[in-house]
């Protein structure tokens, strides 16, 4: 499949959203709200749940399925308070030694006057800093769109798994084409050039696993994913130098031979 076909597939509103995953992979999910500073962003859902017998904190970017759901969820474009809610829940997870699972699906952080006033850049930057030393395992599943800093703000994790048709990119192909060639219709070319598919991310070492979409959304699909998640969490819980490994994982991207 061409890269841009994957982008379009990743954006389909019929795909399972974060809440579909949350309800299928975990049991007893209790949703928590608010960043304790400004408000509650509905583009990000988070709370606690059971992954089999392990208590976990789960945070997802929710796009919604129907038109009204998508409006309510701001099409999965989080505001600063969404990222701050996520950080609050991650710090809470650290306090209670709960692994964190984030489910990412966003075209990007919300672009608006209010978001800028309330420090969109600062909110993302803070998450990156704090996640880098969060002392519990973090696994991210990228289920659809991984739109730039708005996706990365929940993805500074020990493992990144991507759905077969998920994409992860520094900029949308349309944005890239319009900036570089002043022609948004060249998005397909931009998508190829950006190397944004799951297999590109896997080759670059950014994604650790590609999840087949053969039975996407079926009982078998979730059962297999749940078993994999539980196994991986158990591996990560056993690691004593977790935050050092996380540092080295990100340190390796674009590394030059120039050791101190």
């Amino acid at each position: 499949m061409q890269a841009y076909e994957r982008v379009k597939t990743a954006r389909l509103s019929s795909r399972p959203t974060a809440l579909d995953y949350i309800h299928s992979l975990f049991s007893g999910f209790i949703e928590f709200h608010g960043d304790r500073r400004h408000g509650d962003d509905k583009a990000i859902v988070g709370g606690i749940a059971w992954l089999s017998s392990i208590p976990v904190t789960v945070i997802g970017i929710e796009k919604g399925h129907t038109a009204s759901e998508r409006m309510e969820r701001s099409f999965g474009a989080p505001e600063p308070e969404g990222y701050r809610k996520a950080l609050r829940l991650m710090k809470q997870a650290e306090k209670f030694s709960r692994p964190v699972i984030t489910i990412v699906d966003t075209s990007g952080a919300y672009c608006g006057v209010g978001a800028e006033k309330r420090g969109q850049g600062e909110a993302i930057a803070r998450n990156l800093m704090e996640m880098s030393t969060l002392d519990v395992p973090i696994i991210t599943i990228l289920i659809g769109e991984g739109g730039s800093g708005g996706a990365l703000a929940l993805a500074l994790s020990d493992r990144l798994w991507m759905l077969e048709n998920a994409v992860y990119s520094v900029i949308s192909p349309e944005g890239c084409a319009s900036i570089l060639w002043r022609d948004g219709s060249k998005a397909a070319e931009a998508a190829e050039a950006l190397c944004l598919t799951a297999s590109d991310a896997y080759s670059a070492g950014v994604a650790d696993r590609i999840i087949s979409e053969e039975n996407l959304g079926s009982k078998e699909f979730y059962a297999a994913l749940k078993a994999d998640l539980r196994d991986e969490i158990e591996v990560l819980i056993g690691k004593e130098d977790l935050t050092e490994l996380r540092y080295q994982r990100f340190r390796s991207f674009g590394r030059r031979e120039n050791d101190l």
Partner: peptide
């Protein structure tokens, strides 16, 4: 530089 540029934010 694609996704690797984005990763520099994390790094």
């Amino acid at each position: 530089e694609g996704l690797l540029s984005l990763m520099q934010m994390a790094k």
